[in-house]
Design a protein around this nucleic acid. Sequence first.
DNA 1: GCAAACTAACTTGAATTCAAGATACCATTT
DNA 2: AAATGGTATCTTGAATTCAAGTTAGTTTGC
Lengths: 170, 170
Amino acid sequence: MSEARTGDAVDRILEQWARERPDLDVSPMGVIGRLSRCAALLSQRMDAVFAHYGLSGWEFDMLAALRRSGAPYCLAPTELFSSLMVTSGTMTHRLKVLEGKGWITREASELDARSTLVRLSADGFALIERALEAHVANEHAILSGLPARSVEALQKRLAELLATIEDHAN
Amino acid sequence: MSEARTGDAVDRILEQWARERPDLDVSPMGVIGRLSRCAALLSQRMDAVFAHYGLSGWEFDMLAALRRSGAPYCLAPTELFSSLMVTSGTMTHRLKVLEGKGWITREASELDARSTLVRLSADGFALIERALEAHVANEHAILSGLPARSVEALQKRLAELLATIEDHAN
DNA sequence: GCAAACTAACTTGAATTCAAGATACCATTT
DNA sequence: AAATGGTATCTTGAATTCAAGTTAGTTTGC
């Protein structure tokens, strides 16, 4: 009950499996488990900053996607949900909420009558500008706990991994 | 619209920000964005294997936590939800579902009358044994696309990162 | 021209999750 | 022993998400 004073939560899980299933090589759980756990914890930390601006994580993601697309800050719903990895049903709901808050407007496309264009409003633009700066500062702060060389190495390895799994993914 | 033939989805996002907000150093978005995206894609890939055994991701997590705790495969709800990073309300719901499926049973604790012990049933044990082996094989397969040295490097860097953010996290 | 296949967006219903609060029990102090 | 504070679990209601199906508009092949 008090064996592992070194190591993190994932190490403890690996020790349990080594004891219970010594026949299995569970080493991939170390990498993948830490990755998932890092993602969850990072998400919590970023949400804390978003909340400061009255934004949830997905609201920030939506406004940021429109902002970085450049003038006229306008995208089709399909572009939004495919880049943000959510379904069309989720997008319908999100757009309704953001429109209700006045951060986006919607107008019919001239090229394709099926398509409605989503546009960042002036309010939405002003909000995301401020939130973005705080968010980037927060990310810098989070990574400042690591030596720059480690961050760079992590970057490279994650890019490799992403490349191998982005293909396969349907 | 067709500039970046090299690079992944995250590179494209960084290019957009460089164009729109050249005053900001958004490099942390590269690491953190890739990390989040890897986690989301890996989760999809693992869910595909779980589905093969009639399991969702969280169902696998629950049974696996009980299994790796060792005989008598018994944990308190509090131990479960704190290690799985969900709330107590979520745990109540999960336990109800798993009990309904016959994979766990519940019994009052003898030491503490507030506590009900969750126990893996024989069915649950048999199921997680099979699913676990497929899951581990799947994880090996996913990482086999990378050289072993890269995986090891990734492992080290993620452990560093996890150490710095596990502290701060309340 | 018109039917078949496809695409864009939305609707519906169910699943999952959390925050906040309620309830019951335990431990410690007085 | 009574009170206070803390712990373990559950309940409730709302938010978020997805899968599957719907509607409407577009494109292709004959």
